[in-house]
């Protein structure tokens, strides 16, 4: 087919968490510009299997930018060169014939590599378990319309809640800080009446867990916002800092 591309891939290969990894070089030929990045990886993997070699392990599921599973560091950028796009939504028309593409896993000591491009992001779950919820039991609630919520607050809470938990913010940050991810959840609840009762306790518990997981400090470089596929705003971080100070002062 005309317009198809030949690319060189330099891919991080690592057998498991304790093994040391290295870059391997592969050729991806006959790649259509309409393919998604992951479809290009599928083609490469099918070739590898047919040559009797071990295919490249990578995480993916929905392939439409919402599950947060895909996680590739492409040419030095989390989720690749486009803004507001996950790896699975990146299309090959973004690249040129003859390009060399470097593909790495998320790099952070809080996200150990499990194999090749697959990392362990369970630290994110543990932060949510420390306080990312409203304590209501099933069935013990009032009518949904009994507490009006100003539309602006609801809309802003939604924007924070749109985080897909992918971890690109951590991968993009030179300090491996998880502040954008954590602050998005803290903000969602701080903006809604349902989140008020546990507001102070929540932020303190989540921040403590974040520190225990070994994420770094925030030095306001804002690389997280620039690379976040859902364009979660750094204003969430400012809000979380205020929430945290308030909680500490009055506790």
């Amino acid at each position: 087919m005309s317009g198809n591309m030949n690319l060189t891939l330099k891919v991080w290969r690592q057998k498991n968490t304790s093994a040391s990894g290295t870059f391997e070089t592969y050729q991806a030929s006959g790649i259509s510009p309409d393919m998604s990045f992951l479809e290009m990886m599928d083609v490469v993997n099918e070739d590898l299997i047919k040559q009797g070699k071990d295919p490249i392990a990578f995480d993916h599921d929905c392939r439409e930018g919402i599950c947060g599973m895909c996680s590739m560091y492409i040419n030095g950028r989390a989720h690749g060169p486009l803004k507001g796009v996950t790896t699975c939504q990146l299309h090959m028309r973004t690249f040129k014939d003859g390009d060399t593409i470097t593909i790495e896993p998320w790099r952070s000591s809080a996200f150990p590599v499990l194999k090749d491009l697959v990392v362990d992001r369970s630290a994110f779950d543990r932060i949510q378990q420390a306080g990312g919820f409203v304590s209501v039991n099933t069935g013990s609630v009032q009518d949904a319309n009994s507490i009006p919520v100003p539309k602006e607050n609801a809309d802003e809470a939604f924007l924070s809640a749109a985080c897909i938990g992918c971890g690109a913010c951590v991968a993009a940050c030179k300090n491996s800080s998880a502040m954008l991810f954590v602050s998005a959840k803290v903000s969602q609840y701080a903006l809604l009446p349902q989140g008020q009762v546990e507001r102070a306790k929540r932020v303190v518990n989540m921040v403590e867990q974040m520190d225990q997981e070994g994420f770094g400090n925030c030095t306001n470089t804002e690389a997280c916002e620039a690379e976040c596929p859902k364009q979660i705003s750094v204003s969430n971080i400012a809000r979380m800092n205020r929430e945290y100070i308030k909680a500490k002062l009055f506790s």
Binding site: V134, V141, Q142, D143, P148, K151, A154
Partner: peptide
């Protein structure tokens, strides 16, 4: 009712409902 109580940010109208 349950989802709203959990803090699910559903779309709202200007009156807050």
């Amino acid at each position: 009712d349950q989802c709203v109580a959990q803090g699910v940010p559903f779309a709202r109208e200007y009156g807050g409902l």
